[in-house]
Design a protein around this nucleic acid. Sequence first.
DNA 1: CAACAGCGAAAAATCGATTTATCGATTACA
DNA 2: TGTAATCGATAAATCGATTTTTCGCTGTTG
Lengths: 357, 357
Amino acid sequence: MAQQEAQQRRPSIHDVASHAGVSAATVSKVLAGVTTVKPENAQRVLDAVELLGYRVDPLASDMRRAKRRIIGAIMPEFESEFFGQMVSELEGLAEQRGYTLVAASSRESEAREKEILARMHDWRVAGVVLAPVRNEHGPAAGFMKANGMTGVLIDRVLADDAFDTVSADSAAASAEVARALVGEGHRHILVVGLGQQAATVRARLEGFRNTALELAPDMRIDVVLCESDVEPLRTLLRDYFSKREAGNDRPTAVYSLFLKGTLVALSEFRRRGWHCPNDISLVGFDDAEWMQVTWPAIAAVVQPVREIASNAMEVLFRRIEGEGGPPTARLEPCKVLMRESVGSPGSVPHSGGGDRQ
Amino acid sequence: MAQQEAQQRRPSIHDVASHAGVSAATVSKVLAGVTTVKPENAQRVLDAVELLGYRVDPLASDMRRAKRRIIGAIMPEFESEFFGQMVSELEGLAEQRGYTLVAASSRESEAREKEILARMHDWRVAGVVLAPVRNEHGPAAGFMKANGMTGVLIDRVLADDAFDTVSADSAAASAEVARALVGEGHRHILVVGLGQQAATVRARLEGFRNTALELAPDMRIDVVLCESDVEPLRTLLRDYFSKREAGNDRPTAVYSLFLKGTLVALSEFRRRGWHCPNDISLVGFDDAEWMQVTWPAIAAVVQPVREIASNAMEVLFRRIEGEGGPPTARLEPCKVLMRESVGSPGSVPHSGGGDRQ
DNA sequence: CAACAGCGAAAAATCGATTTATCGATTACA
DNA sequence: TGTAATCGATAAATCGATTTTTCGCTGTTG
């Protein structure tokens, strides 16, 4: 008996108008803060709004404008801490500006990425924050350009000739990792990467290689790149270590260029009974909460999620408001956390190849 | 010079109509699949749609209906694998039905939860999937009821008198954990929980306690509940173990009722130099990818994310379509993965209290 | 042959706001 | 005093669809 109000229609601007004894246009103006309204009428409108519990319908409100107050966000996935935090940040920033964020996951598929983008275009979103599956030259960016959409690219990009980009400074972070590993005395390092994500991962690899070879010309760098998914990488790594172990020339450290690679490497170490950092050192690009809790804590490159998100939104809204000029390419500095998984090679004798299982 | 088409307005239904030489109403009918249109005209409409690349504006399309084809999703956070997967699943399911999912994070705040809900009400969403911060009796659910909103509650709920609920069967899973630990010979177990999330966590605790005591009446169960956040828990755990260690009566196993508790427990073990399962066994509620990669792999209760998501959407859409009847309360079975962090107590002598740091 | 039923499509109303054009009343100025 | 400018507010157009109503035409029937 207490829900008599539950089913009834929500009040519209006309209901407020008639309650206040003015026209709908006047109500709209009061709510928009236009000052050419007689104070007395303004007060009556405000009272009616209060009385009826009126709230503007954002959908109807957005009808008339070409760009609606909606921001689209497209991420390759939602399951990881990185993109989870990213969406969370973006949502907050959009909300602060009175915008609604619609987030969708491309599930690492470029085809889906484009479909989602088309749907966001249908919604006439004011702008899009796109974390491309591969890099800035994907079909989605082309679609955005062809349709005159406003957007900013983040994460797996370096620079684009049509859109602003914001990403972590992968090269600089990798250089710092190189300095640290060289400093510990490592001269044979395996780098694990995912080939598909071209731009960024290449920067991570080159940043590492350049600095490592500069500091230690005798450095030996092996690279295991996995083109497509993670599962093949597991096999690649297994084979890689099996071969080296026989020849007794396996690396003393592993630098993984992406989170799942770190997991796979760790898993392979465990299978072989190797412990960090005694048997091998490990550094991973991308931090995760669990890394400081494992035995040992895993050293990691921390991406500045908050900075990337806020700069992306900043530049996006400037474009939405019509700012011109050539596209910008921001690189945000990462932090490198050298945890216990990194030590000097051979500081403790290898625990011996603990076979499989 | 290739972007001449970029800036021009998108075609509306009237553009299609004039191109096809029919009225807008006819276009609408053809697109809606109404059969009372002359085949010839239908074809001309379809041709015009193709030619102009016309796509329905979902915002304008939704204007007329009371319930818009939008589903709201409110999660306590986006950063964890669980809620990340959940959002991903929900988004896919909504899309399948031609709905758009708008997701927002309440950031573990009931006040924010209600604000978001009010904003979703402003959007006239057709339905809401709400994972409440605390439980089904929060202010958000009250708001939904008072405003006649359609919704389904998930995760931290057991049953509600106004809304359908879908959640993991915490009690059954805890019972299974109890059986396993008792089976391994544990007779002194610490349960770590978060008090605030009343309903579910209580079910997890009771499910565990009942079964454990039933199977082993001499079982000793300690409980460390943390009311608010995670950080205090760290201190509580430290004090707990310090006290027991002195008296030499510390538990042989820990069962954490939520993910962050597992992390904190693990971290505390590490601080003390304890290893699982030799020094202490560990099982956590909620699985994570990293748990099968650590040394040792952490035993965990896996929540059926996919099932919860699809059942939640299923029941939500039934309500949206007007189905009546009393609210339902579904419990989806969990899977318990007993990994290496669980063993028999005292199977290997304790490695001695490795002090702090 | 007038009245009627049926069909297909156009015209008009609607959703809930914003924005532009219009209007009446008052004030200012020549 | 007559015309113009100003002010505040209302009516009407608009956004892009859907849905209801109306309408014209054809064919049937009494």
